[in-house]
Amino acid sequence: MELTVYLAGQIHDDWRLEVEKRAKQKELPLSFVGPQTNHERSDNIGEDILGEQPGNYYKDDAASAINNLRTQVLMQKSDIVIALFGENYKQWNTAMDASTAITMNKPVILIRPESLIHPLKELSNKANVTVETIDQALDVIGYIYDW
């Protein structure tokens, strides 16, 4: 049985590649989806499809509508959501994606460092499982396959 995992979180480093690499090492039958990781493509998709907008507000609004549609479709098709919170970047999109997954009743594994226990306490309480590392998140998923 292959599960699809939505990887929610910031798009500024290669943490998703690390998840995929470690899942392969653990021989977990997983496929992965997530947000558009090409930042320029994500920011410009509204104008790429709808044409030039009359200002930055409208440009962002058009891009947001299309990005939110993409997220909704891929998240609905996923079996599990991993939401990674790091310390290096603002995590607004991660919080939004994790909240969306919880609202959709998707199983959520939240990864966050010890330093973010307090600011993420409510979100962590709503997630199914909260861990501190990618390996711990994958071990939780691996337990699904443990007969």
Rank of each mutant, 00 (worst) to 15 (best):
T4I: 06
V5F: 12
Y6D: 00
Y6C: 02
Y6I: 07
Y6V: 00
L7W: 08
A8V: 12
A8T: 13
Q10S: 04
I11W: 09
D13I: 02
D13L: 03
D13N: 12
W15G: 04
W15Q: 08
W15Y: 08
W15C: 04
W15I: 05
R16P: 03
E18W: 15
E20G: 07
E20N: 04
E20R: 15
K21C: 11
R22K: 14
R22C: 02
A23C: 02
K24D: 13
Q25N: 13
K26F: 07
E27D: 08
L28N: 11
L28W: 09
P29F: 15
P29Y: 13
P29G: 11
S31M: 09
F32D: 00
F32N: 07
V33P: 01
G34D: 14
G34P: 15
P35Y: 10
P35D: 14
Q36I: 11
Q36A: 07
T37W: 06
T37M: 06
N38H: 15
H39T: 13
H39N: 05
E40Y: 14
R41W: 07
S42R: 15
D43C: 11
D43L: 13
I45R: 05
I45K: 08
G46A: 04
E47M: 10
D48I: 06
I49E: 03
G51W: 12
E52P: 10
Q53Y: 00
Y57V: 07
Y57L: 06
Y58R: 09
Y58I: 04
D60Y: 11
D61Q: 14
S64F: 14
A65C: 05
I66N: 03
N67V: 14
N68G: 06
L69Q: 13
T71V: 14
V73R: 08
V73Y: 06
M75N: 03
Q76T: 15
I80R: 03
I80K: 05
F85Y: 08
E87T: 13
N88V: 07
Y89C: 08
Y89R: 06
Y89E: 07
W92E: 02
N93L: 09
N93R: 01
T94H: 08
A95C: 12
M96K: 08
M96N: 05
D97A: 08
D97E: 14
D97L: 09
S99L: 07
S99K: 09
T100Y: 11
A101D: 02
A101L: 05
A101H: 04
A101E: 05
A101N: 01
I102K: 12
I102R: 12
N105F: 13
I109N: 02
I109L: 01
L110V: 00
I111F: 01
R112T: 03
P113L: 06
P113E: 11
P113Y: 06
E114F: 14
S115E: 09
L116K: 15
P119G: 10
P119Q: 12
K121S: 14
E122N: 04
S124K: 08
S124F: 09
N125Y: 13
N125A: 09
N125F: 09
N128I: 08
N128Q: 15
N128S: 14
V129Q: 02
T130V: 01
V131N: 04
V131M: 07
E132K: 06
E132F: 00
T133P: 05
T133K: 00
I134D: 01
I134W: 02
D135T: 00
D135V: 05
